[in-house]
Nucleic acid binder design. Structure first.
Length: 512
RNA sequence: GGCAGGGUAGCUCAGCUGGUUAGAGCACGGCACUCAUAAUGCCGGGGUCGCGGGUUCGAGUCCCGCCCCUGCUACCA
């Protein structure tokens, strides 16, 4: 049994969860559940990034302490993840004492193992009082901050700890080229290689203005104790979650997979590996930069999040249908669009008509012709074709070509389509009229029940509740989540007692 | 601006190293069937393959130019 430690980005505590957050968690959850069905010892980590100026400011505006603010948000996020069926094993918060201690330990370890990698430097830049932050040239127009054109930018000097990222150019280039799977999809890797070739600048590791965070373990030569800047606070969560530096952290680290948005692949594939290398710690095995959910051509973000309410999306057809839609419609390696029209089309065409109805008609026939007890029947073409499809499914899911969740679903629906074709071709209702054809009827329905069971297992990572409901209707033993892919080729449904229930994916009563 | 990817049926997209009538799903029209959530199956209509040149016996597929879209171009996270 191999271990599989996977993570998502930790979400920044500056607003309620939106579809963009949900998409990443749902995708990662599908991978986690898939690995469990393979028999892996999965540890699925998600969490929140709770430090930073924005949190501090928002709390001040609301007249509460930062801790009180993030406590509420963490609760809101966890509630949402539960509603969406996210099967996380651990929820880390950067305000956890364990994390804060781990961050200090990691930084101290870098000081210890790579003493030259941290250095003090005076940073001089244009500071916008309105934004309370330094501005890059790209954010300055006519000498004014683009967000606060009425204010005057101040030339401010700040002395910070810096991390010598530039030293790791060759190391990182070699990492990305010698281990092509380290960063996928390929488009992201090419971008990062271009970035490295352009030269890496050192990054600051501490800030003086920032108060809400982890104290940087070493004071500046002036004696000032600064606060750890975001890279060295947020990124290490994956490591500190294992308990580092205490206990059996090495049993879990390194992570097998970091699932992150394409906007932060840079931090995960450049800064993070360099930090770990500086600390002489193992690197994560791979980073996957997924795309974004777009709405009307724009990406979801803190500002646009209000345009699609998660509660409404879940309420429309339920959490499982929402999960299915996002992962089927939006390629996990690129961007895709959400629209209510497509959501309804997919729900009706894929879930209700194709799959739900296939289950419905097959189970109904077993009840009608066999009093609900699945007959024994030899393998058929259906079983053979599904075996080939299972291989395609794994090829899309197991990471060798990336994590192409949308493709895995497409493959399963090929099986669904063939199931419906097979029913029509065999026409069990005709076979049932002729006692001499009883054997054909048995073979047909037995193979269709096997097919539904296999589909339930393959779809369990995507729709955990609906597949369990089908599993129950099929009269299959145990829970669908306890099944193993390895057992599917030998799956035998003989003797199962089916029990048709309500439609898996009911269509609304259409007004006429 | 530089680098990368893309513009193919109403919609979402496949089309590898150039080769017979350009494909799939959804949507749409007709037929069949009746086990099923009026679901399913079969058949069909529908495309100047972004624009303009060029190479070639032959280009959606190669070359040149142009137009448009997206991503990356590092300290909000």
């Amino acid at each position: 049994m191999s271990t599989f430690f996977l993570t998502t980005a930790i979400d920044y505590a500056n607003g309620d969860p939106h579809v963009g957050h949900a998409y990443e968690k749902i995708g990662a959850d599908a991978i986690a559940r898939y690995r469990r069905l393979r028999g892996d010892d999965v540890h699925f980590l998600i969490g929140m990034d709770e430090h930073g100026q924005k949190v501090e400011q928002t709390a001040a505006q609301q007249g509460v302490t930062p801790q009180a603010l993030v406590d509420v948000l963490a609760d809101t996020f966890c509630t949402m993840w539960t509603r969406l069926g996210i099967s996380y094993d651990q929820f880390i918060r950067t305000t956890d004492p364990m994390h804060r201690e781990g961050v200090r330990a990691l930084i101290e370890r870098i000081f210890d193992r790579s003493p030259d990698d941290f250095y003090e430097q005076a940073y001089e830049g244009w500071y916008c009082v309105g934004c309370e932050s330094f501005k890059q040239d790209s954010e300055i127009v006519d000498g004014k901050c683009v967000l606060h054109p009425t204010r005057t930018l101040e030339r401010v000097q700040e002395r910070n700890w810096f991390f010598r990222l530039s030293r790791y150019e060759d190391f990182l280039r070699d990492l990305l080229t010698s281990r092509p799977q380290f960063l996928q999809p390929e488009s992201r890797r090419n971008e990062m290689l271009a970035l490295i070739d352009g030269g890496l600048e050192d990054v600051s590791a501490s800030r003086s203005r920032l108060k809400w965070g982890v104290p940087f373990p070493k004071p500046l030569s002036s004696g000032e104790v600064q606060t750890t800047y975001v890279w060295f606070d947020a990124l290490p969560n994956y490591l500190t979650a294992t308990g580092f530096p205490r206990g059996e952290w090495a049993d879990r680290w390194p992570a097998q997979l970091h699932v992150v948005g394409k906007d932060i692949t840079r931090f995960h594939s450049i800064i993070w590996p360099a930090m770990l290398q500086a600390a002489q710690l193992p690197l994560p095995e791979r980073v996957w930069g997924h795309g974004f959910v777009l709405l009307g051509g724009e990406r979801f973000s803190k500002s646009a999040g209000v345009r699609l309410d998660l509660d409404e999306a879940i309420g429309r057809f339920g959490a499982d249908a929402f999960r299915y839609f996002l992962l089927r419609e939006i390629p996990f390696d690129a961007d895709g669009s959400f629209s209510w029209e497509r959501f309804e089309e997919r729900y009706n065409a894929d879930l209700a008509n194709a799959w739900g109805n296939l289950a419905s008609r097959v189970i109904a026939m077993v009840e009608r012709y066999f009093d609900g007890v699945v007959p024994s029947g030899a393998r058929t073409q259906v079983d053979d074709e599904d075996a080939a499809e299972l291989r395609d499914y794994h090829a899309a899911m197991d990471g060798t070509r990336g994590f192409l969740l949308h493709e895995a679903l497409r493959v399963v629906w090929q099986s669904v389509v063939r199931g419906n074709e097979y029913v029509d071709r065999q026409a069990p209702w005709k076979l049932a009229k002729d006692p001499a054809l009883r054997g054909d009827l048995e073979t047909t329905l037995a193979s269709l029940i096997r097919q539904l069971a296999r589909q339930a297992v393959m779809l369990a990572p995507f729709m955990p509740n609906k597949t369990q409901e089908l599993w129950r209707q099929l009269g299959a033993p145990g829970q669908v989540s306890e099944q193993r892919f390895a057992a599917l080729p030998e799956l035998d449904a003989t003797g199962w007692k089916v029990a048709k229930g309500d439609p898996l994916f009911p269509k609304e009563a259409r007004e006429r």
